[in-house]
C-alpha cells in the first residue's frame, strides 16, 4: 500500500454505495488528500450492480478516477453477491469489509426451482479468497443500533476508518453533514458509524 489508496465499493443500486463513496471523497477533501472517484452504475434507478471507485492520494496526486483488477487496497461491500462479483479487484493483502446482506438478483431467483440457493457459500468464498480477515457487518445489528438498514454504509465507513486510520471522526461527521443533508439520516449514520468502528476494533483484537 503506497501513498495512493484504492477503494472499491460494491453495492446494489439503492443501498447507499454512492453516498458512501461521496462521504469518503468529501472527507478526503477536508483532510487535504488528493481524491478522485468514479462510478459504474447500470441503467436501473435501483437494484442494478453498482461499482464505485475511490482513489485517495496521501501527499501525492491521484489522476485516474478508476483502477484495474487486483488494485484495490480495500473492498467495501454492501451486498454479498456483488462483493463476490468484484473480488478480482482486491489486491493481495487488501482488506474486505462486507455487510452480510444478500439481495439475490432475479436471474438467480428464477433458477431457484432447479436447485435451492446457498448463500453462505458467498461468505465462505470471501473468507477463502481474502488473504486478510474479512470484517463482516450484520445488517440486523445496524438496524438495532441505528434504527434503519439504510445506515449500513455508515457502519462500513466506521469499520473502514477504524482499520485505515485515514480520517478523524470530526471530519467524517462533517462529510456526513454535507452528503446526507437530513438530520435524521445524519443521526442514524452517526450511530451506525460508531457500531462499525467498534466491530472492526473487536475483529482486530481477535486477530
Amino acid at each position: 500500500m503506497g501513498n495512493r489508496i484504492n477503494i472499491l465499493i460494491s453495492s446494489v443500486g439503492g443501498q447507499g454505495g454512492l453516498s458512501l463513496s461521496r462521504m469518503i471523497a468529501v472527507a478526503s477533501g477536508i483532510s487535504g488528500y488528493s481524491v478522485a472517484t468514479g462510478e459504474t452504475l447500470g441503467m436501473a434507478q435501483r437494484f442494478g450492480s453498482v461499482k464505485s471507485f475511490v482513489r485517495i492520494g496521501l501527499g501525492e496526486k491521484v489522476y485516474s478516477p478508476v483502477f484495474s483488477l487486483r488494485e484495490a487496497d480495500y473492498l467495501l461491500c454492501l451486498e454479498l453477491i456483488e462483493c463476490t462479483r468484484n473480488l478480482g479487484y482486491l489486491r493481495e493483502n487488501g482488506r474486505t469489509i462486507a455487510s452480510l446482506e444478500v439481495k439475490p438478483p432475479i436471474s438467480m431467483s428464477l433458477e431457484a426451482s432447479k436447485s435451492k440457493p446457498n448463500y453462505s457459500q458467498y461468505i465462505e468464498t470471501l473468507k477463502s479468497f481474502a488473504s486478510n480477515e474479512v470484517i463482516f457487518i450484520d445488517p440486523d445489528e445496524v438496524r438495532r443500533a441505528a434504527g434503519t438498514i439504510k445506515a449500513v454504509n455508515a457502519a462500513i465507513l466506521g469499520a473502514f476508518v477504524s482499520i485505515s486510520n485515514l480520517f478523524e471522526d470530526k471530519v467524517i461527521l462533517e462529510s456526513m453533514r454535507e452528503v446526507l443533508g437530513s438530520e435524521k439520516a445524519i443521526e442514524s449514520s452517526r450511530k451506525a458509524y460508531e457500531l462499525g468502528k467498534s466491530l472492526a476494533k473487536k475483529e482486530q483484537s481477535l486477530a
Binding site: F47, T125, F129
Partner: peptide, 19 residues
Amino acid sequence: EEDVMKTELHVPSRPPPLC
C-alpha cells in the same frame, strides 16, 4: 496484463430490473 485470481463460485448476473 497479469492473470487475475478467479473464484470458482458462479456469480449470477444482475440485469437491471424494474423496481
